[in-house]
Design a protein around this nucleic acid. Structure first.
Length: 302
DNA sequence: CGGTTTTGACCGGCGC
DNA sequence: GCGCCGGTCAAAACCG
């Protein structure tokens, strides 16, 4: 799990609403009364802030626990896979090496990936560790500039094996322009272009993994040159709760990276406000914890 | 009726 | 040069 996706929930979105302790007390009674009223509301706000902070603490603890469990499961998975890897590496050797996607697998890890906020720099190490741990699922290769014209990323999405639609719901709108059965994989590969094409150059290839048919491998090429997907739209088209979480988080990270430069202070304030209001809702914190743990359990099974 | 999907044909790169 | 293969095109079918 990537702890860097934590929001700084302690940040007060309304700094101007905090009581100013150093404010001078006027001699006039009118002002004193006003000050008392302000002090009252300030203490209420302080209580509220404490409550939110403690909820934030609890939430972070829950996430830490989930993270620990996840790491343990990941470790077990790696052990199991390392036992099988000699066979796999032999059978995986392509008969004929062709020039193919030099920077394929330049993916971001599945699940709670690099959806960084400004306050997450201290978690870079964890991010790196996480990415190393995920090399078996989503690998990174050193990128050479010559191949980096179009950014390529690979996303692995768990799906029902009975689902033959080859659709990966990531919130963006895609137009299918081809389908091909490839040599190294019995299941067909579908080719998609962003619906905003030709103005948006992004392409996507989706194919069921040959090794694990329960996984869909989506390869994205290029970056969207328009605003990201509509979140509500994404929810509306999603099939299941778990997959919604997966895709929102996976692609959301990509999206965040894309839009990072466009963000301004106003948006930051809005984000903090939303975070603040969300953490007030205990149902939300419980649902978030359930979604994350469910997602991790699902990942550990694959 | 406009947008999307399907699917066979075509193209270009690569290895022999 | 030829064949293989992945990627793309484009006409027809489909759908809301």
């Amino acid at each position: 799990m990537d702890c860097s996706s934590f929001l700084d929930l302690n940040t007060n979105p309304f700094p101007e609403m905090l009581p100013k302790k150093e404010a001078s007390v006027s001699a006039s009674t009118h002002f004193k009364r006003k000050w008392l009223e302000q002090d009252e509301s300030a203490s209420e706000l302080r209580e509220e802030l404490n409550r939110v902070n403690s909820e934030n603490k609890k939430l972070n603890e829950m996430l830490a626990t989930v993270h620990e469990n996840y790491c343990a499961l990941r470790h077990q998975l790696e052990k199991l896979q390392s036992r099988q890897s000699p066979e796999i590496s032999q059978t995986e050797q392509p008969i004929k090496k062709r020039k193919q996607d030099p920077d394929e697998f330049l993916g971001f890890p599945i699940g709670l990936s690099s959806g960084k906020t400004e306050n997450s720099s201290s978690n870079d190490d964890q991010q790196q560790q996480y990415e190393q741990k995920n090399q078996l699922i989503s690998c990174k290769r050193p990128v050479t500039d010559s191949f980096n014209k179009a950014k390529v990323s690979t996303v692995y999405v768990p799906t029902d094996t009975s689902d033959t639609s080859l659709t990966v719901k990531d919130g963006y709108q895609w137009r299918k322009y081809g389908q091909k059965v490839t040599r190294d994989n019995p299941s067909p590969r579908a080719y998609f272009r962003c619906s905003f094409a030709p103005s948006c150059p992004v392409k996507k290839k989706v194919q069921r993994s040959a090794e694990d048919p329960s996984l869909l491998v989506a390869t994205y090429e290029g970056t969207h040159n328009h605003l990201g997907p509509n979140a509500s739209e994404c929810d509306a088209t999603s099939q299941g709760g778990s997959s919604t979480v997966t895709l929102d988080l996976v692609h959301g990270s990509h999206r965040l990276a894309l839009e990072k430069n466009e963000r301004n202070t106003m948006q930051d304030v809005l984000v903090q406000q939303m975070a603040s209001s969300l953490t007030k809702d205990s149902k939300f914190t419980a649902a978030l914890a359930a979604a994350i743990s469910g997602r991790l359990m699902e990942q550990s099974r694959t």
